[in-house]
Every structure is written in C-alpha cells, then in structure tokens.
C-alpha cells in the first residue's frame, strides 16, 4: 500500500435531511498514476461518492474512512481538500452570475497557491496561461470572459470543467461524467484533453456511462457500482461487457449475495 493515494474503507454515506443511505460499505484503493473508471446505473451513488470525496456539506458520512495521501480526508474542509490536490469535475456545474470565468479561476488558483506559501499570480500572466490551456479542450476563448457557466451549453460546461482541471493541476481528479451530453466530436476533444492530463504522479477517477470515452482514456481498472457498493472490478474489458449486457446481471448477483 506504499503508493496508495486514496484509500476508501467501508464508506457509508447518506444524503442530508432525507437520511437515505446511499453508499453502503464502499471500498476502493487508488494509486498514483492510475486511472479508475466507475460505471453504474442511474442513482447507484456515483455522484454521491464524488461529492463525499470532495466534502459536499449536504452529504453525511455515517461510517468508514477515507485516507488521502495518508491524511484523514473526511475531517478536512472542502477548500482544504482542493488545496491538498483533490479536484472534482462536476456532473452539473452551477452558474455563478456576474463572476467572470477568468476571475473565478484565478481566485481559486491563487487561493491554492497562497495556502502553499507560494506567491499569487498576476492577472496578466494567469490569463495568458488560461488562454493557452483553453486550447487543450478547444474552448472558445470568448467564454473565458463570460460569467461562470452562465448561458454555457452542456458541452461548454464540460470543457470548462476539464479546463479547470488543467489549470489547477490536481493530484487526484474525480471526473463525474465529463462525457455525458457531448456530441461525438466533443467526446473525442474532451477525452483527448483528459488523456493529455494523465501523468505518472496523478490519479484519475472517471465516472461514465459510456465505453466510448475509455477508448481515449484507457483505464487501469473498471469498477461497477450498484446500490452504493462496488459489485465488480476488472480491467478495461469490463467496460465492454457492461456496455453489451447492461447492469441486470450485476443487480441480480448483488441481490443473491445479500440474501445468501
């Protein structure tokens, strides 16, 4: 376990007020440089896992633990997780009206730098970097001067999330469906962008419903999550199997193992 970047042990989590258990004893280990794909039916808890890792205050952890580089991740504030190098690409990124994307990102970027005792970057240099990195996902440069996600199309929002990952250079990136709602070309562009951000010292958890993105970002592991648990793990071929047979099989297996 020397290289484990992320250790999730028996994680139970429920959603705020409703008190509904969503994650039910989830286990997962992610090492530096690895790409883990997570697949699973709607409502199985994929986004919940992503949110819990990032520290969304609406979710409550009721059991288990998560270590990030040996630290107790669950005790950290969301911004401290971000500063420690955890990044979440949102399935549904929100709008922040009146705040320019460039301004928003520079604020976050500098906040992270400050927390590491580094100097803040000037607006001029930052915007230059932003324009360069925007090319990675072929993002329309004019979007950078618009309010964060305001009036962005679904595809533009996804590119924007990957752009943000490129800027913030996280150690661990959790990408929640970066490919959903994208046209064929956009999937290729976004997937290539992610692939180029793959590094030996960076881990990626890639949540998706489609095998297609995995042709570009070939995962080291694929996990199938059903009803808040990982029911099967394998290599990239598992994604192909899921796509051809669907989830029924895993759901049935899960039921059998629970009753048996």
């Amino acid at each position: 376990m020397a290289n484990a970047m992320l250790e999730i042990r028996n994680l139970d989590a429920s959603v705020g007020v409703a008190d509904v258990e969503i994650l039910k004893g989830l286990n997962m280990t992610v090492r530096r440089g690895e790409v883990h794909a997570i697949m699973g039916p709607n409502g199985s808890g994929k986004s919940t896992l992503a949110y819990v890792l990032a520290g969304h205050p609406g979710y409550v952890v009721t059991g288990g633990e998560v270590l990030f580089e040996g630290q107790n991740l669950l005790a950290m504030e969301p911004e401290d997780r971000a500063r420690a190098g955890l990044f979440l690409s949102f399935q549904h990124p929100v709008e922040v009206p009146g705040v320019r994307l460039s301004e928003f990102l520079r604020a976050g970027y500098n906040s992270i730098r400050k927390s590491r005792g580094e100097e803040e970057m000037s607006a001029r240099l930052f915007n230059q970097m932003l324009r360069e990195k925007a090319q990675l996902v072929e993002m329309e440069p004019s979007l950078i001067q618009r309010s964060v996600n305001e009036g962005f199309s679904g595809g533009e929002r996804k590119r924007n999330e990957v752009l943000q990952m490129a800027i913030l250079e996280p150690k661990l990136a959790v990408l929640d469906e970066p490919d959903s709602g994208l046209d064929v070309d956009a999937v290729r562009i976004v997937a290539n962008g992610i692939e180029r951000l793959r590094r030996s010292d960076r881990a990626i958890i890639l949540i998706t419903h489609y095998q297609r993105i995995l042709d570009y970002v070939v995962p080291d592991y694929v996990h199938v999550i059903v009803d808040g648990r990982i029911v099967k793990s394998g290599d990239k071929d598992l994604a192909l199997e899921v796509e051809s047979v669907g989830y029924d099989k895993y759901e049935e297996e899960l039921e059998k193992s629970l009753s048996g």
Binding site: P78, E79, R81, A82, L88
Partner: peptide, 12 residues
C-alpha cells in the same frame, strides 16, 4: 454555488 467555489480552493 458555495461548494463549487470551495472545491476550487476558495474559503467559504
């Protein structure tokens, strides 16, 4: 919105 900003490194 707050969570989105905090996820990018901003304090609340």
């Amino acid at each position: 919105q707050l969570f989105y900003c905090r996820q990018r490194g901003l304090s609340s």
